[in-house]
Write a protein that binds this DNA or RNA. Structure first.
Lengths: 129, 129
DNA sequence: TTGCCTTTACGAAAGATTTCGTATAAACTT
DNA sequence: AAGTTTATACGAAATCTTTCGTAAAGGCAA
């Protein structure tokens, strides 16, 4: 239906996208089984959600065989970018830096991860020259 | 009513909290006026939301004068922490680092901001020793 | 073939969130 | 004092999201 590039997934839809990103194109049965490793969800619930997602353009589906195969329409990184932007706007009044500082300050980073970030910063700095 | 410390605001509620954080304790009229600088919202809509938020424990209210005065129950930083954790879980499968890298990679940071981050990292590294 | 199992389709119930209409009362205006 | 304006309270409509029951049809097994 809509096919809008900027459609945002709801929480339940995002959960399904995570599975599609992790395992690649999948059937409803497969996705539902994965979801049920976390919590109980009825098969038709998952089916309905995935049909809605196809409508919204969040997933594409191949209907050639009886069992339809769904795949995420956007890459995980693209979607993360989109979600991050909105989240920063809503929760951090648009300041990505405030958010990064919070995340780092929350001692969630190991020494190795901090090294990675330093490396990234060096790369960014040399690009900007 | 609930007073639960981990209650999450909905999007509309978060918008109201932003105003309370920015301007401090305020009346419904004030908050509604601020909201209307962005988009049209009816007065009773805002009133109802703020009453619900008081119920949930997201705001406290002083009912001494006829015009009730509301203030955010949690600090902006505390709420950001809470929201960030959940967002990272949902959108980045729990990896705060992936999220930080995305945010930084998205050339959203100025040279000064990168310096700030480097300073923060140095501080974190010396703490961990 | 007949009967199960699995699938999609569809609609609608259940739940959560957002919006607003109406009632009522306090405070201001004239 | 009477009328107007500005509050809160309350309930319910409107909308969005999640869940599931039921129907219909394809494919498989006996």
């Amino acid at each position: 239906m809509s096919q809008n590039q900027t459609t945002r997934p709801t929480e339940a839809e995002l959960e399904i996208l995570q599975i599609l990103w992790e395992y690649g194109a999948s059937s409803v049965r497969f996705v539902n089984d994965k979801l049920n490793e976390e919590r109980e969800v009825g098969y038709t619930t998952t089916l309905k959600l995935m049909q809605i997602m196809a409508d919204k353009g969040l997933v594409r589906r191949n209907t050639e065989s009886r069992t339809h195969i769904y795949e995420a329409a956007a890459s995980e990184a693209d979607m993360q970018q989109r979600l991050l932007k909105r989240f920063v706007d809503k929760a951090f009044r648009g300041s990505a830096m405030k958010m990064v500082m919070q995340a780092l300050g929350n001692h969630e980073a190991s020494a190795e991860e901090l090294d990675e970030i330093k490396a990234l910063i060096r790369r960014l700095e040399s690009e900007d020259k």
